[in-house]
Simulated assay, not measured.
Amino acid sequence: MTTISGNHFLVIGATGVLGGAVARQLVTAGARVTLSGRSAEKLVNLAEELGDAVVKTIPADLTHPGAPAEIADACGDLDGLVYAAGVVAFGPVSELDDETLDELLLVNLMAYIRLIRAVLPQLQRDSVVIQVSAVVAESPTAGMAAYSASKAALSAFGKALTLETRRQGIRVIDVRPPHTETGLVDRAIAGSAPRLPQGKDPEAVAERIVAAMVDGEKDLPASAFS
């Protein structure tokens, strides 16, 4: 079991639909949160909504290599981390340009690895780390090869991180939800999304994530959201 009430969680990607939903669920459960996202304006709005539960807001652009360390320096000791930042791109590999590839890997993978490296000394014993991957980590999809690869690499990193941090009592949960109605597909950094079925409700996905944190679960595959 993980205690939520009174504990301090860093939420990365808090200005996104899913990140914001997780932050709300944590606060509802009594947590204190530090919020980070690219949009300073959206961070202010979310902080006003969540009130005194917000310890700090940290605007940051994760495409900048120094941003993860700056976030870690600003947030202090932590009882948990939620990494809900991400970007998506569509199209065949033959049309994949370097700029798109770099941003996919920077935001979906590299920034997370850099952030973990920076915050490990600040994570208290019995902390929980949530890394939001995607169903494509389990089922790589044509037209999303680079995105699928970035999420599969994130999942692999999390499995190794679990082994490295278990003596510190840190639990890493790799979350691989099915398509969720976050609007991310409409903000693709390249290409256009194919026709997709109705996705999961982000509030329900966030609720399931926080329940897993509390209940001591160690993995959340796509099937966990059925």
Rank of each mutant, 00 (worst) to 15 (best):
T182Q: 06
V88S: 08
V17N: 13
G37E: 07
G158Y: 12
K56R: 15
D219C: 02
A146T: 05
K42T: 03
E138T: 02
G16Y: 08
V33I: 10
I58N: 06
A29E: 14
P121W: 07
Y112C: 14
S155P: 03
T165F: 00
A204W: 00
A74M: 07
S94L: 12
L104I: 09
Q168D: 14
L96M: 13
T141E: 14
L96A: 15
R117V: 03
T182G: 07
S127M: 11
T34S: 15
G66E: 14
V27G: 04
Q131K: 09
V210H: 08
L123V: 04
C75R: 01
I116G: 00
A212E: 07
N7M: 04
R24W: 03
L78A: 07
D201N: 15
A146R: 07
V185Y: 04
L50E: 06
A211L: 12
A206R: 01
E138P: 01
D52T: 14
D201P: 01
I12R: 03
P177F: 02
E49G: 04
I113R: 10
L109G: 05
E41D: 15
R176W: 00
V17I: 07
A145F: 06
A134N: 13
A211I: 01
A212Q: 09
Q124W: 00
T165E: 05
Q25V: 02
G51R: 11
S139D: 11
L115K: 04
A60G: 15
R208E: 11
Q124I: 02
V44C: 01
A118Q: 11
L123G: 06
V93F: 10
V82A: 11
A69G: 02
E138M: 04
T2N: 13
S155T: 15
D79I: 02
V55G: 05
C75P: 01
A74K: 08
M144A: 14
Q124D: 10
G19N: 08
V22F: 13
A137P: 08
S5A: 15
Y112V: 03
D102L: 09
A152M: 10
T28K: 09
A188N: 08
K159Y: 12
G76R: 03
D98A: 09
H8C: 03
V172K: 07
A89G: 05
G19P: 00
V135K: 12
L101N: 02
Q25N: 09
R38Q: 13
V119A: 06
F90H: 11
V27L: 07
G30I: 10
